[in-house]
Design a protein around this nucleic acid. Sequence first.
DNA 1: AGGGCCGACTGGAGCGTTCCAGTACCGTTG
DNA 2: CAACGGTACTGGAACGCTCCAGTCGGCCCT
Lengths: 331, 331
Amino acid sequence: MPADRVAPTIVDVARAAGVSKSLVSLAIRGDAGVSDATRTRILAVADDLGYRSNVLARGLARGRTQVIGVLVSDLSNPYHADVVAGIESRAEHAGLGTVIGHGRSQPEVLAVRLDQMLDLGVDGVIVVSAMLPAEALDAAATRRPLVMVGRPFEQPRRVSVVRNHDERGAAFALDHLLGLGHRRIVHLASSRRAAATARRHAYGEAMTRADLPATTLWTDEGGTAAMLAAAQTPEGPTACFAGNDRTAATLLHDALDAGLDVPDGLSIVGYDDAQIARQVRPGLTTVAQPREAIGREAARLLLSRIDGDRDTVEVTLEPSLIVRGTTSAPC
Amino acid sequence: MPADRVAPTIVDVARAAGVSKSLVSLAIRGDAGVSDATRTRILAVADDLGYRSNVLARGLARGRTQVIGVLVSDLSNPYHADVVAGIESRAEHAGLGTVIGHGRSQPEVLAVRLDQMLDLGVDGVIVVSAMLPAEALDAAATRRPLVMVGRPFEQPRRVSVVRNHDERGAAFALDHLLGLGHRRIVHLASSRRAAATARRHAYGEAMTRADLPATTLWTDEGGTAAMLAAAQTPEGPTACFAGNDRTAATLLHDALDAGLDVPDGLSIVGYDDAQIARQVRPGLTTVAQPREAIGREAARLLLSRIDGDRDTVEVTLEPSLIVRGTTSAPC
DNA sequence: AGGGCCGACTGGAGCGTTCCAGTACCGTTG
DNA sequence: CAACGGTACTGGAACGCTCCAGTCGGCCCT
């Protein structure tokens, strides 16, 4: 294909093959009702000319582009990357393309990107971000099917949700610590969003069930320092369940700096199995979300919505505990 | 806008405003030649009806979609995220949308995504990945303007390139070490790709210029261990210039494990200012690429190509040295 | 007063598809 | 042998927009 020649259209193929454009269209889409001989001839000619069907024109005529959009709030978050990989593999399997919109963790940018993707004609959208208000999600959902990954900020209507079971994950973490023999376990929280809140509640319930007092400290109120000071007293906590890995990693650094031994002086469990959990030393014991599975499930739900299913559902997937080096029996 | 009503078109707006669809089109695109009174009336009506211009139809009619595509090989790489942010800010400034295609570090997936984005009708593509063969890039470049970020695997024709000045960055690192008084400086290499090779050569030249012997060790040949063993002898190296931060971080871990003091027993400099450079302790001294600037520059080049500029150029941007805790004067 | 010009606006063709209502031809059947 | 049904194929309308060639007044100039 020489440079800069205008791309061949279906009519060029039709003319070259000596048939009508309608027949070329049918042949290319693999429709029945085209004789085998004609089909192979048409396909050969199309290939020969370097013909590529124009998605814009097809989208205009059919109202479908065979492309789904994925809106992520933070590209550099490996959690998002894994979810996206799951989405892509499922979409690809169904013969759909995927484009990604990047919101740079800014709600306004996120909203703009969402609109842009819908304008571009995607058949549906998966939102991997908890930063968008319910009204923006609902507005988008009136245009195209929409599935959201993670706990929504507020519960939108008309939107399916896929997320990990935060309560269960927190319970895993607490069972692990309790099983090791810890009794004085503190929760270090750093966010008041939905997922963090669920984890915090589950912590409280696990402690209550074990007949132990629950204490939550907040990082934005100096909780990390308070936690460390307490841990160095004889009656202080022997373990900490942090709301996420970043919080846990910071605590770990500060603890080591303060001369505390981890895990022997203080056990730490995080949540998310973020990249940092593998990079700190000792490696962080944490709760892992089934990220790719979450992505695949989200794509599955979206595809069924695109195929006309009108129900919006909520799916929770099971997380799992990953034991690394920051937990041991209290001494 | 009640749910599921079909989206209003330009004709609906025209009818409601009592003008022709052509005039609506002109008014909406801000074309001159529409009286102010009529324009405001049309815009009000459009807004009222919740009209959104159909990008597919516009793209079909104009041959332009006002959207550019960004192809990245690895979403979870923060370097890529920063470059993308730079691209987006420049594109947004020019009124263009951005969609991202994700290649999951697999050349075949990358190629498929590239085709898909072109099919979708993007006006141009920026490739942030060195994994695509020159022929795939050239093929894509015959369809739309294409700019690539980073050193191409092989040099494609018809493609503009934006990258950091690896030679200069390596020279910064070496100047820093030499300035501190180091004389026995080893290079630890882990890749034979273009950027790594440029850094290696620049290391060699800097050493030659300082009249010192150059030694390159390869990680895939046990270079890290050899490096550490040598560093513990009296006449061994006092500093190491690593080809990238991942290699440097591994060396740092292993050095600390082996009981070597960093920086006093061994100084280490990395390259890239990856996330990990900030996470290790002590923080890694490294060379930072101007990532956002690279993205903005790539977008600028692409926009000018889209506007009809036919020249393909190659732009190198200046990196900078970031001094953290892994370098000090030799003792 | 007539011609020319300019600003505001219109109608229709065209972009590359899909979809629908046909047509032509063939073999089967009563 | 005419009616019928089915298969293979065709032509044109439609999708929602842009673009181009006009039309229509009103104003200025000579």
